[in-house]
Nucleic acid binder design. Structure first.
Length: 241
DNA sequence: CTCCCGATAGGCT
DNA sequence: GCCTATCGGGAGC
């Protein structure tokens, strides 16, 4: 208990007193105690969690009603060693500070006017995360179509598209848990993918792929996966068992 | 990132 | 010749 208190204090001090956090790595800083089951799910290897998230449900209790669906595509961001991460080289600022939060917390940010949604992974202090890149609509589907001026799979087959479909346009929930609240991830009951495909990530810097790291995962044959070709869609089971 | 547009390739009546 | 799917480039913020 005392230990945890000290760590929290150190973190706060580092966050607000220094520009860089590159010295905090590799210490007992990452020691984690008293994690509940939900946090433990996210407190491990980011690629593994990204795969385990496929089939889990993202739900948003929006002002107009409950909307959401099953996650069919994710992308992993590996923190301080990852050129694509906002926390590359331990960078910590008003945006990236949320990456250092507890596993299972929300991180939403804007890019080119689109809101993108991440969930924090690994023990608190290790700034890794997973972007939710696509969902298959389940709840409040007609509400989601109301939120977007497109037809068919275009409703949610991209990270910015799905947040628009949900009507999720805020950063206010950043740092709060996906476990409860208006925006939740349901990890207990999940649909099992028939097959998971792993590819290079989509993220680019200056129009160049940022790395050859395989960090993108999707449900094979699901039509709501971004870049899914029609001829590769599993029209019968949509890629689920 | 998403949308839109123009170019291209393949399948089909 | 027509239609659909796919791909690459440009624009918007």
């Amino acid at each position: 208990m005392g230990k945890r208190y000290i760590h929290a204090f150190v973190l706060i001090k580092l966050r607000f007193k220094t520009e860089k956090l590159d010295l905090i790595m590799g210490s007992s800083f990452f020691e984690v105690i008293n994690l509940n089951e939900f946090q433990r799910f996210f407190a491990s290897d980011t690629s593994a969690v990204a795969k385990n998230l496929l089939g889990c449900q993202l739900l948003y209790r929006s002002p107009t009603g409950v909307v959401g669906g099953m996650i069919v595509e994710t992308e992993a961001y590996f923190g301080t060693e990852d050129p694509a991460s906002f926390a590359y080289h331990g960078k910590a600022n008003e945006k990236s500070k949320f990456l250092y939060g507890s596993p299972g917390t929300i991180f939403a940010y804007q890019m080119y006017g689109n809101y993108l949604l991440d969930v924090i992974t690994m023990p608190k202090g290790d700034p890794q995360a997973i972007m939710i890149r696509a969902i298959q609509p389940i709840d409040g589907t007609y509400l989601m179509y109301d939120n977007r001026a497109v037809k068919g799979v275009n409703i949610t087959n991209g990270p910015g598209k799905l947040t628009e479909a949900l009507g999720f346009h805020t950063r206010k929930l950043n740092g709060t848990s996906f476990e409860s609240g208006p925006l939740t991830l349901t990890i207990a009951r999940k649909r099992q993918p028939q097959k998971i495909v792993t590819t290079k990530r989509m993220v680019k810097l200056n129009d160049v792929p940022v790395s050859m790291i395989k960090g993108r995962f999707f449900v094979a044959g699901n039509p709501y996966v971004s870049t899914m070709k029609k001829r590769e869609v599993d029209t019968k089971n949509l890629g689920w068992k």
